[in-house]
Nucleic acid binder design. Structure first.
Ligand SMILES: NC(=O)c1ccc[n+]([C@@H]2O[C@H](COP(=O)([O-])OP(=O)(O)OC[C@H]3O[C@@H](n4cnc5c(N)ncnc54)[C@H](O)[C@@H]3O)[C@@H](O)[C@H]2O)c1
Ligand SMILES: NC(=O)c1ccc[n+]([C@@H]2O[C@H](COP(=O)([O-])OP(=O)(O)OC[C@H]3O[C@@H](n4cnc5c(N)ncnc54)[C@H](O)[C@@H]3O)[C@@H](O)[C@H]2O)c1
Lengths: 230, 230
DNA sequence: CTTACTTTGTGAATGATTTCACAAAGTACC
DNA sequence: GGTACTTTGTGAAATCATTCACAAAGTAAG
Protein backbone atom coordinates (compact mmCIF):
# COMPACT_ATOMS: atom_id res chain seq x y z
CA UNK A 1 0.00 0.00 0.00
CA UNK A 2 0.97 3.60 0.25
CA UNK A 3 4.31 3.43 1.97
CA UNK A 4 5.36 6.63 3.59
CA UNK A 5 8.97 6.85 4.64
CA UNK A 6 8.23 9.96 6.62
CA UNK A 7 7.01 8.90 10.01
CA UNK A 8 5.41 12.22 10.83
CA UNK A 9 2.47 11.70 8.56
CA UNK A 10 0.12 14.64 8.52
CA UNK A 11 -3.44 13.94 9.48
CA UNK A 12 -5.45 12.30 6.80
CA UNK A 13 -8.37 14.39 5.66
CA UNK A 14 -10.85 11.79 6.86
CA UNK A 15 -14.42 12.92 7.26
CA UNK A 16 -14.93 13.26 11.01
CA UNK A 17 -18.46 11.90 10.61
CA UNK A 18 -17.08 8.61 9.41
CA UNK A 19 -15.18 7.85 12.58
CA UNK A 20 -17.11 5.59 14.93
CA UNK A 21 -18.10 7.33 18.10
CA UNK A 22 -16.57 4.54 20.15
CA UNK A 23 -13.19 5.33 18.64
CA UNK A 24 -13.40 8.92 19.82
CA UNK A 25 -14.25 7.83 23.34
CA UNK A 26 -11.25 5.55 23.43
CA UNK A 27 -9.07 8.33 22.08
CA UNK A 28 -10.05 10.29 25.12
CA UNK A 29 -8.95 7.37 27.30
CA UNK A 30 -5.64 7.25 25.47
CA UNK A 31 -5.19 10.96 25.98
CA UNK A 32 -5.63 10.66 29.71
CA UNK A 33 -3.38 7.68 30.22
CA UNK A 34 -0.69 9.20 28.02
CA UNK A 35 -0.82 12.25 30.22
CA UNK A 36 -0.12 10.10 33.24
CA UNK A 37 2.73 8.31 31.43
CA UNK A 38 4.24 11.65 30.53
CA UNK A 39 3.94 12.72 34.14
CA UNK A 40 5.73 9.54 35.21
CA UNK A 41 8.53 10.18 32.73
CA UNK A 42 7.70 7.19 30.54
CA UNK A 43 8.85 7.99 27.00
CA UNK A 44 7.79 5.04 24.91
CA UNK A 45 4.73 2.81 24.91
CA UNK A 46 3.58 -0.11 22.78
CA UNK A 47 0.04 -0.71 21.67
CA UNK A 48 0.11 -3.93 23.69
CA UNK A 49 0.97 -2.16 26.92
CA UNK A 50 -1.50 0.65 26.28
CA UNK A 51 -4.19 -1.93 25.64
CA UNK A 52 -3.36 -3.87 28.78
CA UNK A 53 -3.67 -0.78 30.92
CA UNK A 54 -7.06 0.06 29.52
CA UNK A 55 -8.46 -3.45 29.24
CA UNK A 56 -8.52 -3.38 25.45
CA UNK A 57 -7.08 -5.38 22.57
CA UNK A 58 -3.82 -4.14 21.09
CA UNK A 59 -5.10 -4.36 17.53
CA UNK A 60 -7.95 -2.12 18.53
CA UNK A 61 -5.57 0.49 19.86
CA UNK A 62 -3.59 0.44 16.63
CA UNK A 63 -6.72 0.53 14.51
CA UNK A 64 -8.18 3.42 16.41
CA UNK A 65 -5.04 5.45 15.87
CA UNK A 66 -4.80 4.37 12.25
CA UNK A 67 -8.04 6.21 11.56
CA UNK A 68 -6.07 9.44 11.82
CA UNK A 69 -2.61 8.66 10.50
CA UNK A 70 0.53 6.71 11.26
CA UNK A 71 1.87 7.65 14.62
CA UNK A 72 3.82 4.57 15.58
CA UNK A 73 7.29 3.31 14.85
CA UNK A 74 7.50 -0.38 13.91
CA UNK A 75 9.78 -2.30 16.22
CA UNK A 76 9.62 0.47 18.77
CA UNK A 77 6.10 1.53 19.61
CA UNK A 78 4.82 5.05 20.15
CA UNK A 79 6.62 8.06 21.52
CA UNK A 80 4.50 9.04 24.47
CA UNK A 81 4.63 12.79 24.17
CA UNK A 82 4.41 12.73 20.40
CA UNK A 83 1.37 10.49 20.50
CA UNK A 84 -0.24 12.52 23.25
CA UNK A 85 0.20 15.68 21.22
CA UNK A 86 -1.36 14.02 18.20
CA UNK A 87 -4.31 12.64 20.12
CA UNK A 88 -5.00 15.97 21.76
CA UNK A 89 -4.85 17.62 18.39
CA UNK A 90 -7.40 15.16 17.02
CA UNK A 91 -9.73 15.65 19.96
CA UNK A 92 -9.11 19.39 19.79
CA UNK A 93 -8.27 19.43 23.46
CA UNK A 94 -4.98 21.10 22.62
CA UNK A 95 -6.79 24.32 22.08
CA UNK A 96 -9.13 26.08 24.43
CA UNK A 97 -12.65 24.73 24.54
CA UNK A 98 -15.04 27.25 25.95
CA UNK A 99 -17.79 25.84 28.11
CA UNK A 100 -20.80 27.26 29.91
CA UNK A 101 -22.92 25.55 32.52
CA UNK A 102 -26.66 26.03 32.95
CA UNK A 103 -28.19 24.99 36.25
CA UNK A 104 -25.80 25.50 39.16
CA UNK A 105 -27.55 23.23 41.64
CA UNK A 106 -26.21 20.19 43.44
CA UNK A 107 -24.73 18.56 40.41
CA UNK A 108 -23.92 21.74 38.51
CA UNK A 109 -21.86 23.22 41.31
CA UNK A 110 -19.76 20.05 41.46
CA UNK A 111 -19.17 20.20 37.74
CA UNK A 112 -18.37 23.87 37.85
CA UNK A 113 -15.52 23.51 40.28
CA UNK A 114 -14.11 20.30 38.86
CA UNK A 115 -10.47 20.79 38.06
CA UNK A 116 -10.30 17.70 35.88
CA UNK A 117 -12.00 19.57 33.08
CA UNK A 118 -9.53 22.38 33.23
CA UNK A 119 -6.68 19.92 33.09
CA UNK A 120 -8.02 18.56 29.83
CA UNK A 121 -8.17 21.96 28.19
CA UNK A 122 -11.68 23.11 28.98
CA UNK A 123 -12.39 26.59 30.21
CA UNK A 124 -15.53 27.06 32.26
CA UNK A 125 -16.57 30.55 31.21
CA UNK A 126 -19.64 31.07 33.39
CA UNK A 127 -22.68 29.51 34.92
CA UNK A 128 -26.35 30.45 34.65
CA UNK A 129 -29.16 29.85 37.07
CA UNK A 130 -32.61 31.21 37.88
CA UNK A 131 -31.25 31.95 41.30
CA UNK A 132 -27.68 33.09 40.73
CA UNK A 133 -27.24 34.20 44.32
CA UNK A 134 -28.03 30.84 45.91
CA UNK A 135 -26.08 29.13 43.16
CA UNK A 136 -23.09 31.32 43.92
CA UNK A 137 -23.15 30.25 47.56
CA UNK A 138 -23.26 26.63 46.58
CA UNK A 139 -20.47 26.75 44.05
CA UNK A 140 -17.25 27.61 45.81
CA UNK A 141 -15.73 28.75 42.58
CA UNK A 142 -14.36 31.82 40.89
CA UNK A 143 -16.50 31.24 37.82
CA UNK A 144 -19.13 33.98 37.59
CA UNK A 145 -22.76 32.92 37.79
CA UNK A 146 -25.35 35.00 35.98
CA UNK A 147 -29.11 35.11 35.89
CA UNK A 148 -30.49 32.85 33.21
CA UNK A 149 -32.41 35.84 31.85
CA UNK A 150 -29.12 37.28 30.69
CA UNK A 151 -28.07 34.13 28.84
CA UNK A 152 -28.25 35.60 25.36
CA UNK A 153 -26.53 38.87 26.13
CA UNK A 154 -23.75 37.33 28.21
CA UNK A 155 -22.72 34.62 25.81
CA UNK A 156 -23.04 36.67 22.65
CA UNK A 157 -19.67 36.94 20.97
CA UNK A 158 -17.95 34.74 23.56
CA UNK A 159 -17.32 31.86 21.20
CA UNK A 160 -18.96 29.27 23.42
CA UNK A 161 -18.18 25.79 22.15
CA UNK A 162 -20.11 23.57 24.54
CA UNK A 163 -23.01 24.05 26.93
CA UNK A 164 -23.40 21.72 29.90
CA UNK A 165 -26.96 21.29 31.17
CA UNK A 166 -27.80 20.42 34.78
CA UNK A 167 -31.24 21.98 35.19
CA UNK A 168 -34.50 20.38 36.33
CA UNK A 169 -36.11 18.03 33.85
CA UNK A 170 -39.11 20.21 33.08
CA UNK A 171 -37.12 23.17 31.81
CA UNK A 172 -34.36 21.39 29.91
CA UNK A 173 -36.00 21.61 26.47
CA UNK A 174 -36.66 25.30 26.86
CA UNK A 175 -33.10 25.94 28.02
CA UNK A 176 -31.74 23.89 25.15
CA UNK A 177 -33.80 25.88 22.66
CA UNK A 178 -32.34 29.13 23.89
CA UNK A 179 -28.81 27.80 23.84
CA UNK A 180 -29.16 26.50 20.33
CA UNK A 181 -30.53 29.85 19.20
CA UNK A 182 -27.38 31.47 20.55
CA UNK A 183 -25.34 29.41 18.08
CA UNK A 184 -23.93 26.81 20.44
CA UNK A 185 -23.61 23.54 18.55
CA UNK A 186 -22.64 21.08 21.27
CA UNK A 187 -24.52 20.14 24.41
CA UNK A 188 -23.57 17.83 27.24
CA UNK A 189 -26.81 16.93 28.94
CA UNK A 190 -26.89 15.58 32.48
CA UNK A 191 -30.65 15.78 32.60
CA UNK A 192 -32.27 12.40 32.07
CA UNK A 193 -34.50 13.56 29.27
CA UNK A 194 -34.02 13.50 25.52
CA UNK A 195 -33.97 16.95 23.97
CA UNK A 196 -34.93 17.91 20.43
CA UNK A 197 -32.35 20.00 18.61
CA UNK A 198 -31.50 20.85 14.98
CA UNK A 199 -29.36 18.25 13.23
CA UNK A 200 -26.22 20.39 13.32
CA UNK A 201 -26.18 20.34 17.13
CA UNK A 202 -24.32 17.50 18.81
CA UNK A 203 -25.85 16.24 22.04
CA UNK A 204 -24.25 13.80 24.45
CA UNK A 205 -26.10 12.40 27.42
CA UNK A 206 -24.65 11.45 30.76
CA UNK A 207 -27.20 9.48 32.65
CA UNK A 208 -26.13 8.58 36.14
CA UNK A 209 -29.29 6.74 37.18
CA UNK A 210 -29.08 4.58 34.13
CA UNK A 211 -25.73 3.21 35.17
CA UNK A 212 -26.94 2.57 38.68
CA UNK A 213 -30.02 0.77 37.42
CA UNK A 214 -28.17 -1.38 34.99
CA UNK A 215 -25.78 -2.30 37.76
CA UNK A 216 -28.75 -3.37 39.88
CA UNK A 217 -29.61 -5.94 37.25
CA UNK A 218 -26.28 -7.66 37.75
CA UNK A 219 -26.38 -7.63 41.55
CA UNK A 220 -26.50 -11.18 42.90
CA UNK A 221 -27.70 -12.28 39.50
CA UNK A 222 -26.16 -15.66 40.27
CA UNK A 223 -27.27 -17.98 42.97
CA UNK A 224 -27.54 -16.93 46.53
CA UNK A 225 -23.97 -17.15 47.80
CA UNK A 226 -25.23 -16.97 51.40
CA UNK A 227 -25.66 -13.92 53.60
CA UNK A 228 -21.95 -13.46 54.16
CA UNK A 229 -21.71 -15.24 57.47
CA UNK A 230 -18.37 -14.15 58.85
CA UNK B 1 -63.04 -3.65 29.47
CA UNK B 2 -59.37 -3.63 30.26
CA UNK B 3 -58.18 -7.03 29.32
CA UNK B 4 -55.03 -8.39 30.85
CA UNK B 5 -52.50 -10.02 28.61
CA UNK B 6 -52.10 -12.93 30.98
CA UNK B 7 -49.97 -15.11 28.79
CA UNK B 8 -47.75 -17.39 30.72
CA UNK B 9 -46.36 -19.30 27.77
CA UNK B 10 -42.86 -17.87 27.32
CA UNK B 11 -40.95 -16.47 30.28
CA UNK B 12 -37.94 -18.52 29.32
CA UNK B 13 -35.31 -18.78 32.02
CA UNK B 14 -32.68 -16.93 30.01
CA UNK B 15 -29.24 -16.75 31.51
CA UNK B 16 -28.77 -13.17 32.70
CA UNK B 17 -25.19 -13.27 31.51
CA UNK B 18 -26.39 -13.80 27.95
CA UNK B 19 -28.30 -10.54 27.81
CA UNK B 20 -26.31 -7.83 26.06
CA UNK B 21 -25.39 -5.00 28.34
CA UNK B 22 -26.85 -2.50 25.90
CA UNK B 23 -30.25 -4.11 26.32
CA UNK B 24 -30.14 -3.59 30.06
CA UNK B 25 -29.28 0.06 29.63
CA UNK B 26 -32.21 0.55 27.32
CA UNK B 27 -34.48 -1.25 29.75
CA UNK B 28 -33.57 1.42 32.22
CA UNK B 29 -34.58 4.06 29.70
CA UNK B 30 -37.89 2.29 29.17
CA UNK B 31 -38.45 2.15 32.88
CA UNK B 32 -38.03 5.87 33.27
CA UNK B 33 -40.18 6.90 30.36
CA UNK B 34 -42.91 4.48 31.39
CA UNK B 35 -42.87 6.10 34.77
CA UNK B 36 -43.51 9.46 33.18
CA UNK B 37 -46.29 8.01 31.01
CA UNK B 38 -47.90 6.54 34.09
CA UNK B 39 -47.65 9.91 35.78
CA UNK B 40 -49.35 11.53 32.80
CA UNK B 41 -52.15 8.97 32.90
CA UNK B 42 -51.22 7.36 29.59
CA UNK B 43 -52.38 3.74 29.71
CA UNK B 44 -51.19 2.22 26.48
CA UNK B 45 -48.09 2.61 24.38
CA UNK B 46 -46.84 1.03 21.17
CA UNK B 47 -43.28 -0.01 20.48
CA UNK B 48 -43.23 2.56 17.68
CA UNK B 49 -44.15 5.44 19.98
CA UNK B 50 -41.78 4.30 22.69
CA UNK B 51 -39.01 4.11 20.12
CA UNK B 52 -39.80 7.55 18.76
CA UNK B 53 -39.60 9.11 22.18
CA UNK B 54 -36.22 7.55 22.88
CA UNK B 55 -34.71 7.89 19.42
CA UNK B 56 -34.65 4.14 18.80
CA UNK B 57 -36.00 1.68 16.28
CA UNK B 58 -39.31 0.02 17.13
CA UNK B 59 -38.01 -3.46 16.33
CA UNK B 60 -35.26 -2.88 18.81
CA UNK B 61 -37.71 -2.04 21.54
CA UNK B 62 -39.67 -5.19 20.84
CA UNK B 63 -36.57 -7.33 20.65
CA UNK B 64 -35.20 -5.97 23.89
CA UNK B 65 -38.40 -6.84 25.68
CA UNK B 66 -38.59 -10.20 23.97
CA UNK B 67 -35.42 -11.22 25.78
CA UNK B 68 -37.50 -11.53 28.92
CA UNK B 69 -40.92 -12.65 27.79
CA UNK B 70 -43.99 -11.52 25.90
CA UNK B 71 -45.39 -8.38 27.41
CA UNK B 72 -47.22 -6.86 24.48
CA UNK B 73 -50.65 -7.34 22.96
CA UNK B 74 -50.70 -7.60 19.16
CA UNK B 75 -52.91 -4.97 17.59
CA UNK B 76 -52.87 -2.96 20.80
CA UNK B 77 -49.39 -2.35 22.13
CA UNK B 78 -48.25 -2.47 25.74
CA UNK B 79 -50.16 -1.67 28.89
CA UNK B 80 -48.05 1.06 30.44
CA UNK B 81 -48.31 0.10 34.08
CA UNK B 82 -48.08 -3.60 33.38
CA UNK B 83 -44.96 -3.13 31.28
CA UNK B 84 -43.43 -0.82 33.80
CA UNK B 85 -43.94 -3.35 36.55
CA UNK B 86 -42.33 -6.04 34.43
CA UNK B 87 -39.34 -3.91 33.49
CA UNK B 88 -38.75 -2.88 37.07
CA UNK B 89 -38.94 -6.48 38.12
CA UNK B 90 -36.31 -7.42 35.53
CA UNK B 91 -34.01 -4.60 36.60
CA UNK B 92 -34.73 -5.40 40.25
CA UNK B 93 -35.60 -1.79 40.88
CA UNK B 94 -38.94 -2.90 42.28
CA UNK B 95 -37.18 -3.94 45.42
CA UNK B 96 -34.86 -1.95 47.62
CA UNK B 97 -31.31 -1.58 46.40
CA UNK B 98 -28.99 -0.57 49.19
CA UNK B 99 -26.24 1.84 48.20
CA UNK B 100 -23.30 3.43 49.97
CA UNK B 101 -21.18 6.32 48.78
CA UNK B 102 -17.47 6.71 49.42
CA UNK B 103 -16.00 10.18 48.97
CA UNK B 104 -18.46 12.92 49.89
CA UNK B 105 -16.71 15.77 48.13
CA UNK B 106 -18.00 18.04 45.39
CA UNK B 107 -19.40 15.29 43.25
CA UNK B 108 -20.23 12.88 46.04
CA UNK B 109 -22.37 15.35 47.92
CA UNK B 110 -24.41 16.01 44.78
CA UNK B 111 -24.92 12.30 44.28
CA UNK B 112 -25.80 11.77 47.91
CA UNK B 113 -28.69 14.19 47.91
CA UNK B 114 -30.02 13.30 44.48
CA UNK B 115 -33.65 12.35 44.74
CA UNK B 116 -33.69 10.74 41.33
CA UNK B 117 -31.98 7.68 42.73
CA UNK B 118 -34.54 7.32 45.47
CA UNK B 119 -37.32 7.56 42.94
CA UNK B 120 -35.87 4.61 41.08
CA UNK B 121 -35.78 2.42 44.16
CA UNK B 122 -32.31 3.06 45.51
CA UNK B 123 -31.68 3.71 49.17
CA UNK B 124 -28.60 5.70 50.06
CA UNK B 125 -27.62 4.11 53.36
CA UNK B 126 -24.60 6.22 54.28
CA UNK B 127 -21.56 8.04 53.07
CA UNK B 128 -17.92 7.66 54.05
CA UNK B 129 -15.13 10.20 53.92
CA UNK B 130 -11.74 10.82 55.48
CA UNK B 131 -13.18 14.06 56.73
CA UNK B 132 -16.77 13.27 57.68
CA UNK B 133 -17.31 16.60 59.35
CA UNK B 134 -16.46 18.73 56.32
CA UNK B 135 -18.32 16.28 54.15
CA UNK B 136 -21.39 16.62 56.36
CA UNK B 137 -21.36 20.38 55.90
CA UNK B 138 -21.15 20.02 52.16
CA UNK B 139 -23.89 17.45 51.80
CA UNK B 140 -27.17 18.97 52.86
CA UNK B 141 -28.66 15.59 53.42
CA UNK B 142 -30.05 13.38 56.15
CA UNK B 143 -27.84 10.50 55.11
CA UNK B 144 -25.26 9.87 57.84
CA UNK B 145 -21.61 10.29 56.92
CA UNK B 146 -19.02 8.20 58.73
CA UNK B 147 -15.28 8.17 58.91
CA UNK B 148 -13.78 5.90 56.27
CA UNK B 149 -11.91 4.10 59.05
CA UNK B 150 -15.22 2.67 60.19
CA UNK B 151 -16.16 1.35 56.76
CA UNK B 152 -15.94 -2.31 57.65
CA UNK B 153 -17.75 -2.13 60.95
CA UNK B 154 -20.53 0.13 59.70
CA UNK B 155 -21.47 -1.80 56.62
CA UNK B 156 -21.12 -5.24 58.13
CA UNK B 157 -24.47 -7.01 58.03
CA UNK B 158 -26.19 -4.12 56.25
CA UNK B 159 -26.70 -5.99 52.99
CA UNK B 160 -25.06 -3.34 50.85
CA UNK B 161 -25.75 -4.03 47.17
CA UNK B 162 -23.82 -1.27 45.45
CA UNK B 163 -20.95 1.06 46.37
CA UNK B 164 -20.57 4.38 44.57
CA UNK B 165 -17.03 5.77 44.44
CA UNK B 166 -16.25 9.47 44.21
CA UNK B 167 -12.85 9.68 45.90
CA UNK B 168 -9.57 11.13 44.58
CA UNK B 169 -7.85 9.10 41.89
CA UNK B 170 -4.90 8.03 43.99
CA UNK B 171 -6.93 6.24 46.64
CA UNK B 172 -9.60 4.61 44.50
CA UNK B 173 -7.90 1.22 44.21
CA UNK B 174 -7.32 1.00 47.91
CA UNK B 175 -10.92 1.97 48.66
CA UNK B 176 -12.19 -0.54 46.11
CA UNK B 177 -10.12 -3.30 47.74
CA UNK B 178 -11.67 -2.65 51.11
CA UNK B 179 -15.17 -2.54 49.71
CA UNK B 180 -14.73 -5.77 47.85
CA UNK B 181 -13.40 -7.42 50.99
CA UNK B 182 -16.61 -6.41 52.74
CA UNK B 183 -18.55 -8.52 50.27
CA UNK B 184 -19.97 -5.78 48.05
CA UNK B 185 -20.19 -7.11 44.50
CA UNK B 186 -21.17 -4.05 42.51
CA UNK B 187 -19.32 -0.77 42.14
CA UNK B 188 -20.27 2.40 40.31
CA UNK B 189 -17.03 4.27 39.78
CA UNK B 190 -17.00 7.99 39.03
CA UNK B 191 -13.25 8.15 39.33
CA UNK B 192 -11.53 8.22 35.94
CA UNK B 193 -9.26 5.29 36.68
CA UNK B 194 -9.64 1.59 35.96
CA UNK B 195 -9.77 -0.50 39.11
CA UNK B 196 -8.78 -4.14 39.51
CA UNK B 197 -11.36 -6.32 41.21
CA UNK B 198 -12.16 -10.04 41.43
CA UNK B 199 -14.21 -11.39 38.55
CA UNK B 200 -17.38 -11.71 40.58
CA UNK B 201 -17.51 -7.94 41.16
CA UNK B 202 -19.35 -5.85 38.60
CA UNK B 203 -17.86 -2.44 37.93
CA UNK B 204 -19.44 0.33 35.88
CA UNK B 205 -17.63 3.52 35.06
CA UNK B 206 -19.11 6.95 34.63
CA UNK B 207 -16.55 9.20 33.06
CA UNK B 208 -17.70 12.76 32.75
CA UNK B 209 -14.54 14.17 31.16
CA UNK B 210 -14.63 11.52 28.52
CA UNK B 211 -17.99 12.72 27.31
CA UNK B 212 -16.86 16.31 27.29
CA UNK B 213 -13.72 15.44 25.35
CA UNK B 214 -15.52 13.38 22.80
CA UNK B 215 -17.93 16.25 22.30
CA UNK B 216 -15.01 18.54 21.63
CA UNK B 217 -14.09 16.40 18.67
CA UNK B 218 -17.43 17.10 17.06
CA UNK B 219 -17.37 20.84 17.64
CA UNK B 220 -17.05 22.46 14.26
CA UNK B 221 -13.98 24.56 14.63
CA UNK B 222 -13.24 24.67 10.93
CA UNK B 223 -13.65 27.53 8.52
CA UNK B 224 -17.42 27.38 8.78
CA UNK B 225 -19.40 29.23 11.41
CA UNK B 226 -18.25 32.81 11.59
CA UNK B 227 -19.76 33.25 15.04
CA UNK B 228 -16.51 33.76 16.79
CA UNK B 229 -15.32 37.31 16.86
CA UNK B 230 -11.57 37.27 16.98
C1' DC C 1 26.01 -3.62 6.08
C1' DT C 2 23.78 -7.44 7.73
C1' DT C 3 21.18 -10.32 10.63
C1' DA C 4 17.86 -11.12 14.42
C1' DC C 5 14.26 -9.26 16.57
C1' DT C 6 10.22 -6.25 17.65
C1' DT C 7 6.06 -3.92 16.75
C1' DT C 8 3.30 -1.47 13.58
C1' DG C 9 -0.61 -1.09 10.22
C1' DT C 10 -4.11 -3.48 7.99
C1' DG C 11 -6.87 -6.99 5.13
C1' DA C 12 -9.73 -10.89 6.34
C1' DA C 13 -12.42 -13.38 9.71
C1' DT C 14 -15.24 -13.35 13.35
C1' DG C 15 -18.64 -11.63 16.49
C1' DA C 16 -22.28 -8.50 18.02
C1' DT C 17 -26.02 -5.46 17.32
C1' DT C 18 -29.49 -3.25 14.66
C1' DT C 19 -32.86 -3.12 11.16
C1' DC C 20 -36.03 -5.24 7.89
C1' DA C 21 -40.04 -7.47 6.82
C1' DC C 22 -43.84 -10.39 7.57
C1' DA C 23 -46.82 -14.22 9.63
C1' DA C 24 -49.42 -14.64 13.64
C1' DA C 25 -52.30 -12.85 17.01
C1' DG C 26 -54.82 -9.70 18.84
C1' DT C 27 -58.30 -5.48 18.65
C1' DA C 28 -62.47 -2.79 17.08
C1' DC C 29 -66.68 -2.54 15.39
C1' DC C 30 -70.69 -3.85 12.88
C1' DG D 1 -69.57 -14.23 14.30
C1' DG D 2 -67.02 -11.95 10.80
C1' DT D 3 -64.14 -8.68 8.46
C1' DA D 4 -60.66 -4.99 8.38
C1' DC D 5 -57.17 -3.16 10.91
C1' DT D 6 -53.22 -2.78 13.98
C1' DT D 7 -49.15 -4.19 16.27
C1' DT D 8 -46.49 -7.75 18.18
C1' DG D 9 -42.63 -11.19 18.10
C1' DT D 10 -39.03 -13.01 15.47
C1' DG D 11 -36.13 -15.25 11.75
C1' DA D 12 -33.10 -13.38 8.15
C1' DA D 13 -30.35 -9.67 6.29
C1' DA D 14 -27.62 -5.77 6.92
C1' DT D 15 -24.65 -3.08 9.44
C1' DC D 16 -21.16 -2.15 12.70
C1' DA D 17 -17.25 -3.41 15.82
C1' DT D 18 -13.59 -6.33 17.40
C1' DT D 19 -10.01 -9.66 16.98
C1' DC D 20 -6.75 -12.40 14.35
C1' DA D 21 -2.74 -12.91 11.92
C1' DC D 22 1.02 -11.56 9.15
C1' DA D 23 3.89 -8.80 5.73
C1' DA D 24 6.26 -4.63 6.00
C1' DA D 25 9.02 -1.51 8.31
C1' DG D 26 11.42 -0.21 11.68
C1' DT D 27 15.11 -0.97 15.79
C1' DA D 28 19.41 -2.78 17.97
C1' DA D 29 23.83 -4.51 17.83
C1' DG D 30 27.98 -6.44 15.99
N1 LIG E 1 -27.59 15.65 41.72
C1 LIG E 1 -27.24 14.55 41.11
O1 LIG E 1 -26.43 13.79 41.61
C2 LIG E 1 -27.82 14.19 39.79
C3 LIG E 1 -27.58 12.91 39.30
C4 LIG E 1 -28.11 12.56 38.04
C5 LIG E 1 -28.84 13.47 37.34
N2 LIG E 1 -29.07 14.69 37.83
C6 LIG E 1 -29.86 15.61 37.02
O2 LIG E 1 -29.24 16.85 36.93
C7 LIG E 1 -30.19 17.88 36.97
C8 LIG E 1 -29.88 18.78 38.12
O3 LIG E 1 -29.87 18.04 39.31
P1 LIG E 1 -29.52 18.71 40.70
O4 LIG E 1 -29.52 17.63 41.71
O5 LIG E 1 -28.32 19.55 40.55
O6 LIG E 1 -30.82 19.61 40.93
P2 LIG E 1 -30.88 21.02 41.65
O7 LIG E 1 -32.30 21.32 41.85
O8 LIG E 1 -29.96 21.02 42.81
O9 LIG E 1 -30.26 22.00 40.58
C9 LIG E 1 -31.00 22.56 39.53
C10 LIG E 1 -30.57 24.00 39.39
O10 LIG E 1 -31.15 24.54 38.20
C11 LIG E 1 -31.63 25.83 38.50
N3 LIG E 1 -32.68 26.15 37.53
C12 LIG E 1 -33.99 25.87 37.58
N4 LIG E 1 -34.61 26.32 36.47
C13 LIG E 1 -33.67 26.91 35.71
C14 LIG E 1 -33.69 27.57 34.46
N5 LIG E 1 -34.81 27.71 33.75
N6 LIG E 1 -32.53 28.05 33.98
C15 LIG E 1 -31.38 27.93 34.67
N7 LIG E 1 -31.30 27.30 35.87
C16 LIG E 1 -32.44 26.81 36.38
C17 LIG E 1 -32.10 25.76 39.92
O11 LIG E 1 -32.09 27.05 40.49
C18 LIG E 1 -31.03 24.86 40.54
O12 LIG E 1 -29.95 25.60 41.03
C19 LIG E 1 -31.54 17.22 37.11
O13 LIG E 1 -32.15 17.12 35.87
C20 LIG E 1 -31.21 15.86 37.63
O14 LIG E 1 -32.14 14.91 37.17
C21 LIG E 1 -28.57 15.06 39.04
N1 LIG F 1 -16.49 17.12 40.68
C1 LIG F 1 -16.81 16.71 39.47
O1 LIG F 1 -17.60 17.32 38.82
C2 LIG F 1 -16.20 15.48 38.90
C3 LIG F 1 -16.41 15.20 37.57
C4 LIG F 1 -15.84 14.05 37.02
C5 LIG F 1 -15.10 13.20 37.80
N2 LIG F 1 -14.92 13.48 39.09
C6 LIG F 1 -14.13 12.54 39.89
O2 LIG F 1 -14.79 12.24 41.09
C7 LIG F 1 -13.84 12.12 42.13
C8 LIG F 1 -14.20 13.10 43.22
O3 LIG F 1 -14.21 14.40 42.67
P1 LIG F 1 -14.60 15.65 43.55
O4 LIG F 1 -14.60 16.82 42.67
O5 LIG F 1 -15.84 15.36 44.32
O6 LIG F 1 -13.34 15.75 44.51
P2 LIG F 1 -13.32 16.22 46.02
O7 LIG F 1 -11.91 16.39 46.40
O8 LIG F 1 -14.26 17.33 46.20
O9 LIG F 1 -13.92 14.98 46.80
C9 LIG F 1 -13.19 13.86 47.17
C10 LIG F 1 -13.64 13.46 48.58
O10 LIG F 1 -13.06 12.23 48.91
C11 LIG F 1 -12.60 12.30 50.25
N3 LIG F 1 -11.55 11.30 50.43
C12 LIG F 1 -10.22 11.42 50.18
N4 LIG F 1 -9.58 10.27 50.46
C13 LIG F 1 -10.51 9.41 50.90
C14 LIG F 1 -10.48 8.06 51.34
N5 LIG F 1 -9.34 7.35 51.37
N6 LIG F 1 -11.65 7.49 51.72
C15 LIG F 1 -12.80 8.18 51.69
N7 LIG F 1 -12.89 9.45 51.27
C16 LIG F 1 -11.77 10.05 50.88
C17 LIG F 1 -12.16 13.72 50.44
O11 LIG F 1 -12.20 14.08 51.81
C18 LIG F 1 -13.22 14.47 49.62
O12 LIG F 1 -14.32 14.81 50.42
C19 LIG F 1 -12.48 12.39 41.53
O13 LIG F 1 -11.85 11.18 41.24
C20 LIG F 1 -12.80 13.11 40.27
O14 LIG F 1 -11.84 12.85 39.28
C21 LIG F 1 -15.45 14.61 39.68
Amino acid sequence: MAKRPAKQTPQQPIDPDRIPRAVIKRLSLYSRILQSFEFQGIEKISSAELARRLGLNSAQVRKDLACFGQFGVPGFGYHVNDLRRQVRSILKTDREMRVILVGVGNLGSALMSYRGFLKQGFTMLFGFDVNPRAAGDRARSKVPIYDIRDLESKISGQGVDIAVLAVPTDVVQEVANRIVKCGVNAILNFVPMRIEVPARVQVRYVDLSLELESLAYYVQGREKEGEKSD
